[in-house]
Design a protein around this nucleic acid. Structure first.
Lengths: 345, 345
DNA sequence: ACAGGTGGTGAATCGCACA
DNA sequence: GTGTGCGATTCACCACCTG
């Protein structure tokens, strides 16, 4: 970075080491071993060392940015708070924090925390005075004519897009999906502008920049990574008319778990539910499970599980099985779900 | 906070001032004025002042927490990075960052950024050694039997839940939705535990804690807010039926050694057990150990040890690994354990 | 050619009670 | 403190194989 001139870059996209601090080995319930990030480039002695590293590259990045330039950084809870605080300390002006919601994150195998299903991006201008680029209309068009929100639902990089060697091993442990960079660059750069990625890795930034007709610089100190990236980008065909090809965002199915009805107050814990013909009865608990008394003791579980158990059936659709008593009439609980779905739109 | 004793609180939920640094007035496209947060409690002279404030209350919070206690903080990009970094500096151990995705955020009226459609919560243990509470089963139940993810989709507080005075003005500018606190407290506290909210405001934490059978302390320096919160919480009806709020984790079920099945006659010595897909086979001995023949000689030991040895795995849950042959069908030995547990009650 | 089943895998800070 | 052993725990997607 030190060899590049002042105020020469329009946008910087940075995917620095996250400093994950992983402990021992982790296994899936089927005893297979999780292939975690154990690369030497992700190891720092302590938080102070990581902070010094962060402040150093953020300072250079600010020097390289044009006055109206912006910076993107991606990270997880391990590092993003330190990066964000350092940004603000240096006078960068945060424009948004953006959540990359993963459609297919790795589960939490031990059941000890919430599934870590997202990463965080910070989008910041070089200073509070920067007159930055934001392609509002492109983003709105990409989102079915609704303003693009700060939470993005995008799959992780896998399948054919994931770079692998002849033995099928992934060539970079943290390759980012092109869909993510597509949205970043489409939102914050104009065709022909210069994008710098100081942690180039497998070269996703360069590949997408080339395709979208942006110029790019990638910095990578590992020679293998640099070679992989060069070969990858050489295979990319630039779009001659980018307006013709848009990556449509992934739509999420509007699933409504039964527990949400309790959480949102549409259903009080303790409410009684009835099966068809009032032959069965169960009580709603505060976590959205049911409790019912059967001939062989209590049944607890989801609306589907308890419905199945009471009928002695292998499966049951709880949404149509269970009913509320509304002034003597039996009303299927599915009407509450429809109500909530309507509120969600 | 200074008046409370050391290590007296199980969970802290903190909704500190966000230090929003709003500039002039903001108007909607129809020229109506946006009623933003202009309260004096949200104004700080500079980042250093805000940091000092943050570090002070985080230090007190850590003193008040029991060794296995956890802390929740909610914030936006204006303050959450500073809070997160300060947390880590103090030795708190981050467990998750959780994204509250708003179903109905305020749009970005100027079209200059992404719609700011989320807030960030940090969930952290008092230290890396804390053996914190996480009600995995409840969270899974609340999400239709899938692991709860780190992104939560919840509406903002509005409608009947929003506290308003006689003139219809909102009584607190940043009242949080009860659904958010419902999920927070259901995930990380047990009935009867003590929850502290050092920025009590309109008292959402107290209202939900009372309803869910948790004890609570709210600290609020504004007398009007304190009065509003007191009146609000007085109107809340707690759930009295313990079966609605007490969720017994599987991990706390009474331990049943495998040998008891043999001892009680549920399993004959000499019975053959099979691994998944009948790829492995072992014989039950009279002391509850197994004996199996592998490629490298006999394996003897507990159901777990033999299962692990045959798979070449570091560990194995024998209860789910081994199956009985019941008329040609494979039945996990765990059903025998459940039978014995039921007899023991 | 197509449907359905099987197996692999992803930026992961992933126990706890005993002796 | 340290060591040992029980036993709890996974979702979405894709490649590949089989019928």
């Amino acid at each position: 970075m030190r060899s590049l001139p002042d105020a020469s870059v329009d946008v910087i996209f940075a995917d620095p080491p996250y400093n994950l601090q992983l402990g021992g080995e982790l296994h899936r319930p089927n005893n297979s071993r999780v292939d975690g990030v154990e690369d030497s480039w992700d190891r720092f002695d302590d938080l102070a060392t990581y902070d010094a590293f962060t402040r150093a590259w953020l300072a250079e990045a600010q020097r390289l940015l044009k006055p109206d330039g912006t910076l993107w950084v991606i990270g997880s809870y391990h590092n993003i708070f330190r990066v964000g605080a350092a940004l603000q300390d240096r006078g960068y002006w945060i424009l948004n924090d953006v959540i990359w919601r993963k459609s297919n994150p790795m589960p939490n195998f031990r059941g000890r925390r919430f599934t870590n299903a997202h990463e965080t991006l910070i989008w910041a201008a070089r200073s509070q005075e920067s007159r930055y680029t934001f392609n509002y209309e492109s983003m709105k068009a990409l989102n079915d004519d609704l303003q693009m929100r700060s939470d993005w639902y995008i799959p992780i990089c896998s399948g054919g897009e994931r770079l692998r060697d002849a033995e099928g091993r992934k060539q970079h442990s943290t390759q980012k999906p092109e869909a993510l960079l597509h949205r970043v660059l489409l939102a914050s750069t104009r065709p022909g502008q210069l994008v710098l990625d100081p942690f180039f890795g497998s070269g996703t930034t360069g590949a997408v920049a080339k395709r979208l007709g942006r110029r790019w610089i990638g910095l990578e100190r590992d020679n293998d990574y640099a070679r992989i990236a060069r070969e990858r980008i050489a295979r990319v065909e630039p779009l001659t008319d980018p307006s013709l090809i848009e990556i449509k965002p992934k739509r999420e199915a509007p699933r409504v778990p039964f527990g949400w009805l309790v959480e949102r107050g549409l259903l009080e814990p303790g409410t009684l539910l009835y099966g068809p013909g009032r032959r069965h009865c169960a009580k709603v608990r505060s976590d959205g499970t049911l409790i019912a008394s059967g001939p062989e003791g209590d049944h607890r579980g989801s609306i589907h599980q308890v419905g199945a158990a009471l009928q002695g059936a292998p499966a049951c659709n709880g949404w149509s099985f269970w009913h509320l008593d509304v002034e003597g009439r039996a009303v299927p609980i599915d009407v509450l779900r429809q109500k909530l779905r309507a509120e969600m739109e």
